[in-house]
Amino acid sequence: MSNVVKPADRYAGLDTRFWADIVHMAEVNKAINLGMGMPDFNAQPQSIMDAMCDVLVDGHYSLHQYTKSSGHPRLVKVLAKLYSHLLNNEVKDDNILITLGAYQAIHCALYGLINHGDEVIIIDPAYDAYATITRAAGGVPVHTALKRTDTYRNENNNDITGADALMPGMYERTVTIGSLGKAFNVTGWRCGWAITGHPGIRHALSLAHVVSVYCCPTPIQEAAARVFEIELDKLQLNHVDCMYWTQLCALMGKKRTLMYDMLTDMGLKPMMPEGSYYMVADCQALIDRLDLTAYYDKRGKTFEFVRWLSARGVQAVPLTVFYSTDNKQLGEGITNELGANKGFYLGR
């Protein structure tokens, strides 16, 4: 009898090691990690910390037990009000599913709607999980790539409002996914949501959710609901300048400008982000001047440059990982920097 245990066939050929490699590379080189989508300073609002403390210390016993599979009612209600405003549509409670982060919302959407052999169109550059989860669900990723100039714009124009759902007739044909981690800079809390105007789509996502995690942590959802209520009250009173996101944009805007200027002074060609803290930079001119022999990587010159950069104390991400094999040449020479959400750029 063999002692070898292999993953199920549906996971054959899937490679999920990239992000672990980036973390390991940064740790070995003691590099400042610009490769992870999270801040390295206290960017979360005090209100969400206070809300969590109140729930844990003074919360009703029910807040420490299971909640509804579709989502904690208080959080669902406030999200319905907020997204009714954002999507310019009536979002009802039963249009919302609370998930274990935005990642699980993507998982539920693909597992809930894809049958074996279904083709899924993915526009490169794309979050690498789209293709990975599609294959695991039995689907077939079909990649198409934007032109390089459009790529920069698309990569950085990343808002949380669900812009596609704002188009006429699209609310019932789309799934708008959001994340508490990115909304309030608490990525470790793992709370997200999926919103759709189509009851059949919502039901499909719910089935995938129930058979995976069933429900999400109640205390986190309760704390999230309380802080969303605070921000929604400010919006309804037209106190927009006092909202967390308004103040965060001002802070991140300064960091974005400083990062852009620094990369430009280095001779790189960064693209100014329009709605994300990711900054894409064309590093080809620098790569062409370097001897990267000692940093050989079979995945290409951009990976070699990332290794060279990490050895000098800065960890970036090669943009090629967000392209399919056939389109990787479009990402060569370009790196993804996350400097706008790192505290050290403005000094500590």
Rank of each mutant, 00 (worst) to 15 (best):
A316M: 13
L86V: 07
V28Y: 14
Y61S: 12
V186F: 09
S324L: 07
L232T: 03
V280W: 12
A225H: 12
L113A: 02
G117K: 05
G35Q: 04
Y152E: 01
G200Q: 12
D241P: 00
K301R: 15
W19N: 10
V76P: 10
W193L: 06
L286S: 11
T196M: 08
E231W: 06
V5E: 13
Y103I: 00
T302P: 11
R17E: 13
N154E: 01
G253C: 02
G101S: 07
G101C: 05
V314G: 01
A145M: 08
H198W: 06
P168C: 00
T335K: 00
D233L: 04
M279F: 04
I114D: 01
V28D: 14
L232C: 03
E229H: 08
R256Q: 06
Y295W: 13
A208S: 11
I230L: 08
A137N: 02
T187P: 02
A163K: 14
H203C: 00
M252V: 10
G181I: 01
H209S: 14
Q44D: 07
A136F: 02
A126V: 11
Q44A: 10
H85D: 06
Y61M: 13
H209W: 07
F228W: 15
V211A: 07
D265A: 12
G267W: 05
C216W: 02
R226C: 13
Q104S: 09
T218H: 14
V23Q: 14
E90A: 07
G188H: 14
G117Y: 09
Y66M: 07
C249Y: 06
R312K: 15
C283F: 06
A316D: 13
T132P: 01
G313L: 04
K92M: 13
E172T: 09
H60F: 10
H107L: 09
P73W: 11
K30F: 10
L100R: 02
P168W: 00
M259K: 05
N154T: 02
D128S: 13
M271L: 00
M25Q: 14
G35S: 09
G71F: 11
K30E: 15
G37F: 07
R348I: 15
G162W: 14
D58P: 01
D150T: 09
F344E: 11
V314F: 15
L292P: 15
L263I: 06
V227A: 05
T257I: 04
T335I: 13
L97M: 12
M49A: 11
A80P: 15
C283A: 12
E229Q: 15
T151V: 04
E27G: 08
Y11D: 02
L110C: 04
H64K: 09
D128A: 03
G101H: 08
A51C: 11
K147I: 02
G347W: 09
G138F: 12
H143F: 15
T264C: 10
I160Y: 10
D150V: 02
I22T: 12
A43C: 04
L263V: 02
W19P: 01
D326Q: 13
G59L: 04
L248E: 14
G253M: 01
W189S: 09
V142C: 11
A285Y: 03
Y244C: 08
D21M: 15
T196D: 11
N33P: 00
D282P: 15
G200K: 09
R190W: 10
V120E: 03
Y296I: 01
I177A: 00
M272G: 04
E119D: 08
N157K: 04
V4N: 05
M279S: 07
V142M: 11
A31Q: 13
Q236P: 02
W308C: 00
G300D: 00
